[in-house]
Amino acid sequence: MKRTFILIVGMMAVVAVLFMNATEPVAGYGVGDYAKDFNLENIDGKSLSLADYSDAKGFIVVFTCNTCPYANAYESRIMDLDKNYSSKGFPVVAINPNDITQQPDDSMSKMKQRAKDKGYTFAYLRDDSQEVAKAFGATKTPHVYVLNKEAANKYKVEFIGAIDDSPNDASDVSETYVEDAINAILTGRKPAVTEKRAIGCTIKWKS
Score class of each variant (00 low, 15 high):
Leu50Pro: 07
Thr187Ile: 07
Ala162Arg: 09
Leu186Arg: 08
Ile8Asn: 04
Ile100Cys: 06
Gln130Asn: 14
Gly45Thr: 02
Ala152Asp: 14
Phe159Pro: 11
Asn66Asp: 14
Val157Ser: 06
Asp82Tyr: 02
Ala22Glu: 12
Ser76Thr: 03
Ile160Lys: 15
Leu147Lys: 04
Ser129Pro: 13
Gly89Lys: 08
Thr23Glu: 13
Ser109Gly: 06
Asn96Gly: 07
Ala71Thr: 02
Lys206Asn: 03
Arg197Trp: 07
Ala198Trp: 08
Glu175His: 01
Met20Asn: 10
Ile185Gly: 07
Ser54Thr: 15
Arg197Ile: 08
Ser86Met: 14
Ala162Cys: 00
Gly161Pro: 01
Ser166Asp: 04
Ala138Arg: 08
Asn96Gln: 10
Lys206Tyr: 01
Gly32Ile: 05
Pro91Trp: 02
Ala170Ser: 13
Val26Gly: 15
Glu75Trp: 11
Thr141Gln: 10
Leu40Tyr: 11
Lys83His: 11
Met108Lys: 07
Met11Trp: 13
Met108Val: 05
Leu48Trp: 12
Gly119Ile: 13
Val61Gln: 13
Val31Asn: 09
Leu147Tyr: 06
Ala162Ser: 11
Asp37Asn: 11
Thr67Asp: 13
Val157Pro: 09
Val157Arg: 04
Ile199Tyr: 01
Thr121Ser: 13
Glu150Trp: 08
Val146Gly: 09
Ala198Val: 04
Asp52Pro: 11
Cys68Asn: 03
Ala133Lys: 07
Asn98His: 09
Asp172Ile: 12
Lys46Met: 13
Thr194Ile: 00
Phe63His: 08
Asn96Lys: 00
Thr194Tyr: 00
Gly30Pro: 10
Ala192Val: 15
Glu179Ala: 10
Asn168Glu: 02
Tyr34Ser: 10
Asp117Ile: 10
Cys201Arg: 10
Ala13Asp: 06
Phe59Ala: 04
Asn96Ser: 03
Ala181Trp: 11
Asn39Glu: 15
Asn153Leu: 11
Ala162Ile: 12
Asn42Ser: 15
